[in-house]
């Protein structure tokens, strides 16, 4: 027998082990690939959707499309016997007026709620409030539309003595209430992200609770708060069902909050089902889709960059 069995064992190990791949190695590889696919899928889907709607609207953009008419004509008459007109100005005005009013409603509500949750309550109350706000965000938009149609409509007619209650005011309030929860949630995160030592420093100098909030916390969180508002705006632009139900859906450049309007999104939702696939009308609706996509993309990107900006600081 050789005198050195230990040495022999090491030799055997070193001969066989270096390129040995066991099951764990394959699992690791597999998981890496899966996670990678998951990670890029969002980008792939976004690109896919963008390509799809652009392709569907492309015929229109290339052939009948008049940039000036599309953007600056207030007449949207896609089914006219004499001459089809595809002007989205009135629709843009509808969407913008409703979103604008919605922000007027949502900003005070959401900032107030966020400040209250982040700065005035803690412990259990805070948790309950947060859960409640998140529950509000989960209310389906058709339910909000239903509220607009069956509660707000008669209420507005009654209170303001106007013939129609389905108008900018109605949709603006409904949309504002819809956007407020998500804005609250993000604004509250922004306020909570302000380090406590800033509050402590200000309090130690004898600042009142309100001075701490107004002079220290809000300025420090302003980017996050702006991001919250922009996300609310993005939400407003993209919202369809509640707006369709509460605006009155009539093409109109509004001159007061009691005018009925029609939103870009609602137009697509209401008309797409009735058009022949590939017709100019169909393609025009997709062009509106592209337009909406670009706008919401820009808004969300800005919001994201702003929020990212605070993290860097």
């Amino acid at each position: 027998m050789p005198a050195n069995p230990a040495r022999q064992t090491t030799e055997v190990l070193s001969n066989t082990d270096f390129d040995h791949r066991d099951l764990d190695w394959y699992i690791d590889r597999g998981v890496q690939i899966l996670v990678f696919l998951g990670g890029i899928s969002a980008i792939v889907f976004i690109l896919g959707i963008f390509i799809f709607i652009t392709k569907e609207g492309l015929g229109f953009i290339l052939e009948d499309f008049s940039f000036r008419e599309f953007l600056f004509s207030p007449t949207w008459r896609p089914t006219s016997e004499l001459k089809e007109t595809y002007g989205i100005l009135a629709l843009v005005a509808g969407t913008a007026s409703v979103t604008g009013l919605a922000m007027l409603v949502a900003i005070p509500f959401s900032l107030g709620t966020a400040i209250f949750i982040a700065e005035f309550v803690d412990g259990k109350t805070r948790e309950y409030l947060k859960v409640t706000v998140e529950l509000l965000a989960a209310i389906p938009s058709v339910v909000w539309g239903f509220i607009g149609l069956s509660i707000m409509n008669p209420l507005i007619i009654d209170v303001f003595d106007v013939p129609v209650g389905l108008n900018v005011l109605n949709a603006g309030i409904i949309l504002g209430l819809m956007a407020a929860p998500i804005m609250t949630s993000i604004a509250e995160d922004a306020l909570k992200a302000v380090p406590d030592r800033y509050r402590e420093a200000a309090e130690a100098m004898g600042a009142t609770h309100w001075q701490v909030i107004y002079k220290v916390v809000l300025p420090a969180a302003k980017n996050g708060l702006l991001g919250a508002v922009l996300l609310g705006v993005g939400r407003g632009f993209g919202e369809t069902m509640a707006v369709l139900m509460a605006t009155g859906h009539s093409i109109n450049i509004p001159t007061s909050v009691f005018d009925s309007v029609r939103a870009l999104t609602a137009t697509i939702a209401a008309e797409l089902g009735e058009t022949a696939v590939g017709s100019p009308h169909y393609q025009a609706l997709f062009t509106i889709g592209v337009f909406l996509f670009v706008i919401t993309f820009c808004i969300n990107l800005t919001a994201d960059l702003i929020v990212r900006g605070i993290r860097k600081e």
Binding site: Y198, E200, A201, A202, V216, P219, A220, E313
Partner: peptide, 9 residues
Amino acid sequence: FQRPNPLPI
């Protein structure tokens, strides 16, 4: 304070 805490202004 222990950790310098100037306000972010």
